Simulated assay, not measured.
Amino acid sequence: MKDFLIEIFAWWRGNTWGTRLWTALNGVFVGTDEFGNRYYRSRKIGANGRERRMVIYAGGLAEASTIPAGWHGWMHYRTDVPPTEEGYVPRSWEKPHRPNLTGTAAAYRPRGSLLAEGERPRVTGDYDAWSPE
């Protein structure tokens, strides 16, 4: 019951009933990625001459870093064909998808930061510290 009420009223969390209703009435299902995110396009072309592209995130929390590279290109109009229709094959230089790890124990911490081990590197000669005169 709690999740149901949160989905109705907590729009900042991600998927709401309004989003689901609008997508059901105006969207055409395009495909699903390996994380369970579902992708839609609008039935009509908008005033800007393009279709609207939408994603319903798996798990309820709207986290844009869970969109893989192929779907990211489609969502941002870099390609007109979604990965499900094209048979998307990642390029040899593309790394596998990793979620946003900010705020977790696995987040990137450079050497010398307060939360990492090691000593902060010394400043090289190309930097002059500011001091008020």
Rank of each mutant, 00 (worst) to 15 (best):
D3F: 11
E7S: 08
F9Y: 13
F9G: 09
A10L: 08
W11G: 11
W11L: 12
W12H: 15
W12T: 12
G14Y: 04
G18T: 04
T19Q: 01
W22V: 03
W22H: 04
A24R: 09
A24Q: 10
L25T: 10
N26K: 10
N26V: 05
G27L: 06
V28Y: 03
V28F: 00
G31V: 02
G31Q: 05
T32K: 02
D33T: 01
D33S: 07
E34W: 06
E34L: 06
E34A: 10
E34G: 05
F35D: 00
F35P: 00
G36R: 00
G36D: 04
R38P: 02
Y39R: 00
Y39A: 02
S42L: 02
R43F: 05
I45H: 03
I45M: 15
A47K: 13
N48K: 10
G49L: 08
R50M: 12
R53K: 08
M54L: 11
M54I: 06
I56W: 05
I56H: 06
Y57G: 01
A58D: 06
A58S: 08
G60V: 08
A62G: 06
A62P: 04
A64Q: 13
S65V: 09
S65T: 13
S65F: 08
W71R: 01
H72R: 09
H72C: 00
G73P: 02
W74F: 00
W74I: 06
H76T: 12
Y77L: 10
T79I: 12
D80F: 01
D80Y: 07
P83G: 10
T84H: 03
T84L: 00
E85F: 08
E86F: 11
E86P: 05
Y88F: 15
Y88E: 07
P90E: 07
R91K: 15
R91V: 07
S92H: 11
W93N: 11
K95V: 12
K95S: 15
H97G: 04
R98D: 12
P99I: 15
N100R: 11
L101P: 01
T104R: 08
A105D: 14
A106N: 10
A107Q: 15
Y108T: 11
